[in-house]
């Protein structure tokens, strides 16, 4: 075993301190050390996107990041998406639109889609499809996933404008 290094992680707002091999992948740190098993592994080659988490709000593939590289970064996983018992609009939309079947790719899909909506709150179908090009699903044919992301964008838009009205 190579020399261990201290790894400081901040995940879903909670601080963690590990002593780990430098080769420890972020996805294994999340799953095996922090018990956050919602982030999945579906391949060895950074293709499938099941391991997608947010790095300072941007989606990345946690199977291709060393845990030590996440030092000083705000990491968000699927477990951090629902707030105060309220599902994230994407979670709600995936549920309403049957955007999942086996559920294995779902956390990664939601995290990738959240990255898109953060940058582009009102995407076209084409933009949604390309934003998900790094996430594989075998069950749904993507049809209902794309629909869910478009619906979530509408709901999110509605939420934002409602908030604006309140503050105005």
């Amino acid at each position: 075993m190579s020399k261990t290094v201290p790894v400081h992680l901040r995940v879903n707002g909670v601080e963690h301190q590990l002593d780990a091999e430098p080769r420890l992948l972020l996805v294994h740190a999340l799953r095996d050390h922090l018990g956050l098993t919602g982030t999945h592994v579906g391949c060895d080659t950074s293709n499938c996107g099941a391991c997608t988490v947010h790095f300072n709000g941007q989606p990345v593939k946690s199977c291709t990041v060393l845990a030590v590289q996440a030092d000083g970064v705000e990491v968000t996983t699927i477990e951090g998406m629902a707030k105060d018992g309220e599902l994230h609009p994407l979670q709600e939309a995936f549920w309403n639109d049957h955007g999942l079947q086996c559920g294995y790719c779902t956390p990664g899909m939601i995290m990738a889609a959240a990255g898109l909506l953060e940058r582009n709150p009102n995407p076209s179908e084409h933009e949604v499809r390309h934003a998900l090009e790094g996430n594989l699903c075998r069950c749904t044919g993507y049809h209902n996933i794309v629909k869910a992301v478009l619906d979530a964008a509408k709901t999110k838009g509605a939420t934002v404008s409602a908030q604006r009205e309140v503050s105005a």
Partner: peptide
């Protein structure tokens, strides 16, 4: 290049 996640890193 690849996909959005890869382009972020």
């Amino acid at each position: 290049i690849a996909d959005p996640q890869v382009r972020n890193r």
